[in-house]
Amino acid sequence: MNIFRFLGDMSHILSFVILLLKITQGKSAAGISLRTQELYMIVFCSRYLDLFWNFSSLYNSFLKVVFIACSSAIVYIIRFKSPQKDTWNPELDNFPIQYLIGPCAVAGLLINQDWTPFEMIWAFSIYLEAVAILPQLFLLQKQGEVENLTSHYVAALGAYRGLYLMNWVYRYFTEDDYLQRIVWFAGTVQTGLYIDFFYHYYQSKRGGLSRPVKLP
């Protein structure tokens, strides 16, 4: 464990806290992509299958349960719970996620760390996580303006994988024979997708004024 990875996990937890607060207290899922939340639920449920046999640390096992529980709760609330379910707009949030899941599944089959079923599923989850934010970014693009809490949610989510990139650099230089090309590649793509958002987020938050984040 190193500070970058710890801060990355804290940023990830923060993103869950912000989103859960927004949809439970704000009673609205407006501006939140259910598609992205469904993809995250698939990512965590598939990647953390090793919950039952890979106890690398209590910290990991605990957070795996937390991430599966939170992502499932978010999907449940937006899909089934009133009044949130009425604030979800299927016409706006209509990114064809099958075009993300399909290629990631093929990639997981072909490029993984070991030819076992779990490793193929694990690689699939890594690739899927890299592109899972796309429906959310498309939704924000359509709306043009980003609600304040939503902007903090996306920023925390982007920061989490960005901090993981620093964690991988740190591990590469401090551990011998540390090689994780799959997560390095996917994590770079994932963080890259946020660059444009981060630019507009920074512009809107600069100078302390909380002007709304505007995406062109």
Binding site: S56, N60, L63, D114, W122
Partner: peptide
Amino acid sequence: RHHDVNHDEL
């Protein structure tokens, strides 16, 4: 070749 892939990250 079953090298034990041990994922120690989330």
